[in-house]
Amino acid sequence: MMETAKIKVKKLNLYYGDNHALKDIDIKIRPKAVTAFIGPSGCGKSTFLKTLNRMNDLVENVKIEGEVLLDEKDIYAPGVDTTILRKKVGMVFQQPNPFPMSIYDNIAYGPRIHGIKDKRKLDEIVEESLRGAAIFDEVKDRLKKNALGLSGGQQQRICIARALAVCPEVLLMDEPTSALDPISTSKIEDLMEDLKKKYTVVIVTHNMQQAVRVADDTAFFLLGELIEFRETKLLFSYPQDKRTEDYITGRFG
């Protein structure tokens, strides 16, 4: 199905204490495409997403085995600097979480922590990122206003722009529209069409229609296992596994 892979995961197991939360996951994620993870809540899809930029490191008592290769380099190898990794693999969260500061400072936060101080350069990055997240026109006149004053949908696009500002190669999105209204949701779904031209996008969603609308490939997770992973069209039209079929036809979930 694919010849090159941006991310390759081999035999990944994850434990929360005694709880075996991810079991033997093997997956290859295509570059410059949208890959969706679906499955009932608690199936491990979000947990798996967070292993791709090592956000699980922040949780106590987590043990991870196996390999996650980003451009053929194991991100769990000893000596890997997670700050460099996370600069390459950006993330957008379920709840819009802009910092309590101005829109401009929100976007400039990433570039600044990575050492960019030049004001003109920052201006450029901010504008470019906001355009990239299709929100520039809505906020260009109030860049100095607090980002918390925006609507939820706008806040989420600010968060996407913030993630774009550090020039990531991969963008992880953890149910980015589940807290938003339908109009904001469709704006963000449209945006993903553009994003995949430049970035490898991985999205977790509990909404199957959303996966159908935005994703090139879809992976179905159940109880910590990767059940099926194929092109979205194929997965939804000709599921190979009985459990996938049961799930997408709405028998459980």
Binding site: L70, D71, K73, I75, A77, G79, V80, D81, I84, L85, K87, K88, C167, E169
Partner: peptide
């Protein structure tokens, strides 16, 4: 940055 190593 593509070729930059991930290591510390």
């Amino acid at each position: 940055n593509d070729n930059r190593d991930l290591s510390f």
